[in-house]
Design a protein around this nucleic acid. Structure first.
Lengths: 139, 139
DNA sequence: GTGTTTGCAAAGTGTTTGCAATTTA
DNA sequence: TAAATTGCAAACACTTTGCAAACAC
């Protein structure tokens, strides 16, 4: 783990409690993987295999459930860049993404590096829920 | 078909020829559905069932193949808004989208209604291939 | 005729679900 | 103990593929 990104001890547990999610062994372990280091992007598969590597016994179904529960709780943000695969970002603050379709790598764009000067008026009775900017790169 | 959007006769055929795609019965029929009216957003499923309604006999596999061939040929643009479903847009010019997750409706945002003042510098040796802006709406 | 395209059905991928067993409070 | 959570395997939705038959040139 990168010391630069290290976060307060017990943060994983606290986050679960604050979200009203029972701190089960699986959730706690996944939360530690997700939140105890630098911000990161995961898919269900990558998180599941990372857990396996760390000798954490969690089923893939539970990883999916957990990612969605964390997302609903506001601990994660889901990012759609690829039809057929869901990414989740531990950085829930307003920012956008680079996506390299060749290798599936997703990277944050610092908030201030994309400036939307003008937002369009949404159709009829609709309200804007979120604006996603995906900069697709090659190379 | 909306007369306002009507396009030159035989455009479908011309587009296929220009792209080096053999104008088979299926491709021609799909091209007519796609290009002879207003700009539109389709999924493989919606296009397939539209073809069926019009008594055009095309398999779903061929619809998928055709959508990809048209996309490679630059006749369509693929839009990723939803993990697990691919949308295709007949409008290939630079513009962005509203997406309503509740009902899956996709709508163009007129080009000038989203202004990106500043593009981020892509990582290392990468170049920007495209910028997608998706305004997610509710209501 | 020859190479391309199609359709079908099977396989593939990522994700969700039903339910009994387990765990948490 | 009661309610929530887990794991498994089956089901799912969407998409791709292999290959023989049909088609375009």
């Amino acid at each position: 783990m990168n010391a630069i990104c290290q976060r307060p001890f017990r943060q994983a547990l606290d986050r679960l409690r604050a979200s009203g999610l029972r701190p089960t062994r699986q959730r706690l372990a996944l939360a530690k993987l997700l939140f105890d280091g630098c911000d990161r992007h995961v898919t269900a598969e990558t998180l599941h295999s990372e857990a396996s590597s760390a000798n954490i016994r969690v089923s893939l179904a539970t990883v999916y459930n957990t990612l969605h529960q964390f997302t609903e709780a506001g601990l994660l943000r889901e990012i759609v860049v690829d039809a057929g695969r869901s990414y989740f970002d531990t950085n829930t603050s307003e920012h956008h993404h680079f996506f390299n379709e060749r290798n599936g790598m997703l990277a944050d764009i610092p908030g201030s590096d994309v400036v939307l000067t003008q937002l369009p008026k949404p159709p009829d009775g609709m309200t804007i829920r979120r604006v996603d900017v995906i900069v697709r790169v090659d190379g």
